[in-house]
């Protein structure tokens, strides 16, 4: 069984959960979703590994690295599980709001370093740029339009997970959707979101 662990604080509504769900559709074996938000006890952390043959960590980028709650999870497992964890391959599906997926390399390196400390096999990661946009394209098939590159990445990662083999890290961005357009669209969306909260556009720049 493959455990798909969502490390986003936004839980079920997160882009991270969406990407893990897309990966699940490409895996031909039983999968179980788990949410880091709900995992509190040492036993629950250990069970993630004892129940699984492979684990996929879904993570959003926070300030250039894994979110603090994911770092805490890794710290706790390192303290509790060193030398005792079942040696299963660890894969990553990472995403972020910036366009360039290469900005996710630090997050992937942290997981890689953690695996090395715990003697777990790092199976490879899929880094998804422009995640805020890609997370909303569920109605477009994975092999079409802006989803094409991401779809290929998900398929490649799924194939490696199926065989429990390692892949180099995969970096994907929207297909045929240039950065300048993404920048424009993403920039405009903040004003709209603020307005919904009764915050005027110029108030967004407020200094305290």
């Amino acid at each position: 069984m493959v455990i798909l662990l969502n490390c986003s604080f936004r839980g079920e509504k997160s882009n991270t959960r969406y990407f893990l769900g897309q990966l699940e559709t490409l895996l031909n074996e039983p999968c179980r979703h788990a949410a880091l938000n709900r995992i509190k006890e040492e036993q629950e952390r250990a069970e993630l590994f004892s129940d699984a043959d492979a684990i996929v960590l879904g993570m959003p980028l926070y300030v250039d690295g894994p979110p603090a709650q994911a770092v805490e999870f890794m710290e706790r497992l390192y303290e509790e599980g060193r030398g005792r964890l079942k040696r299963i391959p660890v894969y990553v599906v990472a995403n972020m709001g910036f366009y360039e997926s290469r900005q996710l390399h630090i997050l992937l390196s942290v997981v890689k370093n953690w695996c090395a400390r715990l003697d777990l096999s790092y199976g490879g990661g899929l880094a998804i740029g422009a995640g805020e946009m890609m997370g909303g394209l569920g109605k477009i098939p994975l092999d079409q339009g802006p989803n094409k590159e991401m779809g290929q990445g998900l398929k490649k990662l799924a194939a490696h997970i199926g065989k429990r083999t390692d892949t180099e890290d995969l970096y994907v961005e929207p297909t045929g959707f240039p950065r300048r357009l993404y920048l424009l669209a993403a920039g405009m969306s903040w004003g709209r979101q603020a307005k919904k909260n009764g915050v005027k556009r110029k108030e967004i720049k407020r200094r305290r």
Binding site: A68, V71, M74, I106, V110, I204
Partner: peptide
């Protein structure tokens, strides 16, 4: 912590993004 800040220091950094727009 594996090339990251510890979870506490990372948490403070995560809580600091209002420094930017």
């Amino acid at each position: 912590s594996f090339g990251s800040y510890s979870s506490f220091v990372k948490n403070v950094m995560d809580r600091s993004i209002s420094y930017m727009l």
